[in-house]
Design a protein around this nucleic acid. Structure first.
Length: 385
DNA sequence: ATGTCC
């Protein structure tokens, strides 16, 4: 029996909203993740709950899911990393000029940026938050900054329309709002636990204002991570796209405002997105296709975890040395001086990304524009004591 | 996920 305290607060009286899991039989989804999705579908005001092919259990609410509601919004469904997302930069360096081994030895994005963070935020039109010491840092868990080369181009027209060239490096940054979003959710949970907010309440307004700030701050954070990374390799870059996969946004395409919650779900209504594989795997640049109402205007945001962090540590430690995991099947390098994190984030801990993307293609939701292969993944330079 | 737990 589960003893997750958060689920005790979830009202189960409301009728269940439609639940849809977009995943083929080949990409099995854990039963617990579907049960969590169904529990969320019984929240007051819920209209639709969608699981994407990377759906997996989370802390109460599942990850890889999108929810639309009316009358209420649910900060708990966005989670603590408000504004987390993926940014892609075009790098003005030929892939064949890459020096991953040399870069891996010297890149260091730990600690506060030594530049003018206030000025940087101002340039991006974002107010400071009190968390500026973390601005420009990647964070933990599945966050990373990864230099990539183009593996294959499948849609040359869209590829070049994005300003991309097959022989250039790209930089993909996955990070969020660090401690800022966490503090915003904590303030909500202290009062309401997993409960929602009436959308006409002043508390909802306060939350949304803070949420929007964290989303903007998270985007600026990715931009500064990119800048630090590019400074480290002596290159320049241009942002190609940046999308958020943890957020709640209003939609007014029906008579009444609907709240679209994304919990580890990329948008399908903001143009091309990158769906990253884990470290030693390809990432997919895709363009959304077709009508996306039934999929809550959302896409998978990654491969999706297959093993828990604890299980991954145990299983990987038995089979591999930490050292061996700093190189991948693509001969790319991984900067991760935290061994536990290296094991937790090892490729076998995740579902195969190609199956996740194929599910989206077969559901008519995306077309693959290009596949991107890792060259150098930066996780952390810091060693735990 | 987390200036991560007193």
């Amino acid at each position: 029996m589960r003893t997750d305290a958060s689920s005790e607060h979830l009202p189960t009286s409301a009728p269940q909203a439609p639940v849809r899991v977009i995943a083929s039989a080949q990409s099995w989804v854990e039963g617990e993740a579907v049960r969590q999705l169904e529990a969320m579908a019984r929240l007051p005001g819920m209209k639709l709950a969608v699981g994407l092919p990377d759906l997996h259990p989370g802390k109460g609410a599942p990850v890889g899911a999108a929810f639309t509601s009316e009358g209420f919004l649910y900060p708990y469904l966005v989670g603590s990393d408000i504004g987390c997302g993926m940014g892609l930069w075009n790098v003005d360096l030929l892939a064949r000029k890459a020096k991953p081994e040399r870069w891996a030895g010297k890149l260091d994005l730990e600690g506060p940026w030594t530049g003018d963070t206030e000025g940087f935020l101002q340039e991006h039109g974002v107010k400071s938050s009190g968390y500026e010491a973390a601005l420009g840092t990647v964070g933990g868990g599945n966050h990373f900054a990864e230099l990539q080369r183009v593996d294959a181009v499948h849609d040359a027209k869209v590829f070049s329309a994005l300003g991309l060239e097959a022989d250039r490096l790209l930089l993909l940054v996955h990070s969020g709002s660090r401690g800022l979003g966490e503090a915003i959710l904590r303030a909500h949970v202290d009062r309401h636990a997993a409960g929602g907010l009436a959308d006409d309440s002043s508390e909802a307004q306060t939350y949304l204002t803070r949420h929007d700030h964290a989303v903007a701050w998270g985007r600026a954070n990715r931009a500064l991570v990119a800048r630090r990374m590019l400074d480290g390799i002596g290159a320049m870059g241009q942002r190609v796209l940046d999308v958020c996969h943890n957020s709640v946004t209003p939609r007014r395409d029906t008579g009444r405002t609907q709240w679209l919650h994304r919990k580890g779900a990329a948008p399908s209504d903001e143009g091309p997105v990158v769906i990253p594989g884990s470290r030693g795997a390809l990432s997919y640049l895709v363009i959304p296709t077709g009508e996306s109402h039934a999929s809550a205007h959302s896409l998978a945001h990654g491969a999706g975890r297959k093993w828990t962090r604890t299980a991954a540590r145990e299983r990987m430690r038995e089979r591999f040395t930490a050292e061996s995991l700093t190189r991948t099947a693509f001969k790319s390098h991984v900067v991760c001086e935290n061994k536990d994190l290296l094991f937790e984030e090892a490729p076998p801990a995740y579902k195969p990304i190609d199956r996740v993307v194929t599910d989206l293609v077969e559901a008519g939701l995306v077309r693959v524009v290009a596949t991107l292969a890792p060259v150098l993944t930066y996780k952390t330079r810091a060693r735990p004591e």
